[in-house]
């Protein structure tokens, strides 16, 4: 739906976002008690070595998912080809305008975005934040399965 392959449906998005929200934050970190690394888990030790980052991402997911549920009625913004890409990368006129360059630029810069602000955004923009958070966390804390 978010990739545009099927039509947008606000109820489906809201419902899914609520489900993700319920499993995020504390509900998620509770599932990673000390000493639960190792097979069959694919959790990396980094989770417990850097619990703060892990819990932070879980809480960020919680916030973004709830924001997405609130934003579900906001029709997805059309994403022109040039939009997110070049501007996200450049920030300003130079290559590395601090936030732009850090890749996760918009994630980091928006760290403080509250649910109310998210509720005003196009649904697909909030969804991108949700999926970026999934990806950040899996990149740092999930070992490869096969």
């Amino acid at each position: 739906m978010m990739s545009g392959e099927t039509g947008y449906d606000a109820d489906t998005v809201r419902h899914a976002a609520e489900t993700i929200g319920m499993h995020a934050g504390d509900a998620m970190t509770r599932l990673f008690p000390d000493g639960s690394a190792g097979m069959p888990s694919v959790a990396k030790d980094a989770i417990w070595n850097d619990w703060e980052s892990f819990a932070g991402l879980a809480e960020e997911l919680h916030r973004y998912a709830e924001g997405l549920a609130l934003a579900a009625d906001n029709a997805p913004a059309s994403q022109s080809d040039t939009k997110s890409n070049t501007s996200a990368m450049m920030g300003g006129s130079d290559m590395m305008g601090a936030n732009s360059m850090m890749g996760s630029g918009d994630m980091m810069a928006d760290d403080t975005m509250g649910r109310e602000e998210l509720a005003e955004m196009p649904a697909n923009a909030v969804f991108a934040k949700v999926s970026d958070t999934c990806s950040s966390c899996h990149t740092r804390f999930r070992a490869k399965v096969k």
Binding site: A128, S131, C134, S135, H138, T139, R142, A143
Partner: peptide, 13 residues
């Protein structure tokens, strides 16, 4: 573009 795979999972590692 998004890191989201067809199954709804995301790329890690």
């Amino acid at each position: 573009q998004s890191g989201v795979t067809p199954s709804g999972d995301v790329f890690g590692g």
